[in-house]
Design a protein around this nucleic acid. Structure first.
Lengths: 228, 228
DNA sequence: GCGATAGTTCGATGGCCATCGAAGCGAAGA
DNA sequence: TCTTCGCTTCGATGGCCATCGAACTATCGC
């Protein structure tokens, strides 16, 4: 039993370029297969297999076998949060001053952060919900107000079905491009899922970017009272 | 200008055992010299010099030259936060289930987290301030209530002198041993500094542990209304 | 100035590990 | 059953990098 946890183990897992690319690819929230991840990291299947084995061993990924495919995904929210904070710091250090965030406008506007919406729109959503007093934040678990509860119930959220397991309903997640909070947690996940389900937006195939349809964007802004 | 920031650079800096030990040593908040850090990491001065050069280059550390000594410290709060979250995850993964936190009771009870108080006492302090409505937390910058403002003014805080620069006055920091919040930010720093200044506690020489005197502990608990 | 101490530079060494090609394995599908 | 596809295992290769000893520079105390 160590006196202090060994940081270097986990850090060195992320510290390899190929593995880092796999992990950031998995920040898109979708489970990806071994070959897809090999493609993403620009390495051959054998190399990828070795890396993935280590990542699973190190408990950063979990794997699900399905037929002859192997689907990998991030182990959990805390891993996603760690990656997000690494992205945040790296962005700041590598873009000295300047405008923060990715040059790719699509990524900056809206992207998936593990299982919820991030980017300009994600931050705007969070701000709007705060301004309307639908959420009342607290440090560890951001709370939904009674007004917020009512609001989301009207939007079709079944709070009984989103059984409050160990995951918090609401949670503030620091956005690496905007450096402000966006909404994570079960509710954040519901909002993103709902976006896709209602056809207002769709995932881009090979990236974390979220593409809104023109109509979808309009309806999204209207529903959540986002101005600007 | 990269489409996504390169995580692996920073992660690999932390991913070396010797460097990781230096960084965690610097979580104590004190600036340390090159030889002290070499001692801490169990390496010879030349090796340490090479590592420290890389850490400064990578903007994780800043260095201050003083005579023939070179004092190193963490570059800033975000670096400290990144390390803290790494500690948190590593602790969970390496102590499967079981009781969280370090086995060293001194470290568990009270330790320095960069520049503020962490551990059981740090968490208890945060809870007590919350319960007394002296702080009212929000996700990005935890606010001081008017009652809290008054309270700390009585304790001798000169809010004019703690000029609100870019750093927030209050801030919730996730504790890696307790998995709950403790108080960071300018005010968190003031509390720790005050602890040392008033002689209620002192740093242990070679670790992050904070040693309270018997009298100091009693006064500390009383001042901040901590029960238990 | 002269020794002592802090830190660096240099070069050599060694080990770890990412990488790949080739071969193996297992599941799907025809 | 044979082929194809997804993934893994094995072995070999190469490169990067942590490490140290020795020599060097700089600063301090005297």
């Amino acid at each position: 039993m160590p006196l202090q946890p060994d940081i270097s183990q986990i850090a060195s897992l992320i510290g390899d370029n190929a593995r880092a690319r796999m992990l950031t690819a998995l920040m898109g929230g979708k489970a990806l297969t071994a070959t897809e991840l090999a493609l993403e990291a620009n390495i051959t299947p054998p190399t990828a297999s070795s890396h993935l084995h280590k990542l699973v061993e190190g408990q950063l990924l979990i794997v699900r076998k399905q037929g002859r495919h192997k689907y990998f995904q991030l182990q959990g929210h805390d891993v996603a949060e760690l990656l997000e904070s690494l992205l945040s710091i790296s962005a700041r250090l590598q873009n000295p001053g300047r405008k923060t965030g990715p040059s790719n406008p699509r990524l900056r506007q809206a992207r998936v952060c593990y299982n919820h919406l991030a980017g300009e729109l994600g931050v705007a959503l969070f701000d709007s919900l705060s301004a309307q007093q639908l959420i009342t934040p607290s440090p560890d678990n951001t709370q939904l107000t009674t007004a917020g509860h009512e609001f989301f119930q009207q939007q079709g959220v079944d709070f009984d079905q989103l059984k409050p397991g160990r995951r918090p309903l609401c949670k503030a997640c620091l956005d690496w491009s905007e450096r402000r909070s966006h909404l994570a947690g079960v509710l954040g996940q519901w909002i993103l899922d709902d976006l896709f389900a209602s056809g207002w937006a769709e995932r881009e195939l090979d990236s974390r970017a979220v593409r809104f349809s023109e109509r979808g964007l309009r309806l999204f802004l209207m529903r959540y009272g986002i101005v600007g």
